[in-house]
Design a protein around this nucleic acid. Sequence first.
DNA 1: TTACCATGGATTGTATTCAGTGTATACAAT
DNA 2: ATTGTATACACTGAATACAATCCATGGTAA
Lengths: 248, 248
Amino acid sequence: MTPRSRPKRSLRSRPDDAALKRISSRRVPEGGGGRSLAEVACDEIRRAIREGRVPTGAHLTEVDVASWLGMSRTPVREAMRRLQSEGLLLNQPFRGALVMRLDAEDMQQMFAVRELLEPAAAAACALQATETEMRALRGVLEREARVLGDPAALILLNRQFHDLILEAARNQFLGRAIAAVYALIPLLGDSNLLDEPHARAAHAQHLAILDAIEARDAARAETVAREHVRHSLEHRLARIAGDPGRPS
Amino acid sequence: MTPRSRPKRSLRSRPDDAALKRISSRRVPEGGGGRSLAEVACDEIRRAIREGRVPTGAHLTEVDVASWLGMSRTPVREAMRRLQSEGLLLNQPFRGALVMRLDAEDMQQMFAVRELLEPAAAAACALQATETEMRALRGVLEREARVLGDPAALILLNRQFHDLILEAARNQFLGRAIAAVYALIPLLGDSNLLDEPHARAAHAQHLAILDAIEARDAARAETVAREHVRHSLEHRLARIAGDPGRPS
DNA sequence: TTACCATGGATTGTATTCAGTGTATACAAT
DNA sequence: ATTGTATACACTGAATACAATCCATGGTAA
């Protein structure tokens, strides 16, 4: 059988079983699902910090992290740079990076700024949210009501609620400012929502915020959102009362 | 005097006139004065954007920038990543990056957030600034008064003034939030301070802010700072009145 | 003993190279 | 003409090799 006799597909190169084997055995760069290795590294480091697997104050070097994550220095470097600019890591020129630590004082500063920004977002949302966005918010809170005992799910929904409000506020700079503050939340350690009574209180406050938004009452949304932030701070302060130096 | 007595660079290989010539003609890594090439690249790109040499909406590729700045892709890549996270560049996976553009709407959003944050910083400063910090602020304004016709110097001093206030406010999160917003200022194009009448007005407002701070009058500092931001926005809006789509 | 400086190790900074992706273009088949 | 396929090109993503830098340490001379 000459090559000519292939009936159609004359331009396609011939099937090659060896190529198939090569493909299936190779580590594809896009492994994780569209995310670059740098993103993977970023998320992994962040998660390790949040979960305390890498303690605050720890010393990280590029080679260590690279071998830990099984990749080369290049994406790790990129990830560490990013985390440095977010403030999670403190760069020490030629000496590696330290995992930042926050003390109780820092935590109060963080909440002071959140108390400034989040109420503003809620107010803007009350003025500008579309019907669709309010339905989405309502949907999140309905789901939230059903998982008050499941911290993992709760944390996700809580985040969604706040993100939706921020998006509906339609101000990219407000979003950037809040993101800059949120970036350091992993340093605070365990979420407040692990505590079910607090989770119930927080849910009630979410409902109050959404009520104000649906009523297009910006002033009330602002007030309630501010109290929500304050409650959150108080709960954190109570939790660390015995150990003032270490919020995490 | 033995060859050993070379004051610094003790690790460098022995003196070598040919090498000296190479060195002086080569771009040494430490050339700029301790800054890494990545930082140089970051500043260069930022400056080019601010000065409009790279127009908003332009398409940047790593190789282009690398050959423009005479360095390899690695530091350029790092710089572009950083500018992406700051929001000056918009990343397009596998396709390079676009220089972000802001329209008048975006600009108003930016000033809305500044109107939230900068007064808070002024108020905190009024409560917490040390005598030393207030002297420094006064010194900056005295120098400012002498260069009202020199935009370049003025811009520097203006920046110093605001930075000092922020530092005296003693809240790293407020600093991060404001930095996240300021990062996009290069996209706004020419500074307001190029206009001398406006520069005089701004200087007067600076004086008013400092007076309030020195009087430890947080409420007044907050009010005056808010008006300072508003004036700045109004001036920018007036400038682009004829061309609403393009602030820069 | 003390001050000083050279040396080595650890770590980052930069360049180069290779592999994979996405888009545009040319060309065969309908 | 239009559609589908293969190829070419440009670019980024990642790995590796190399240079520069900082710090600690130990030896040497005063």
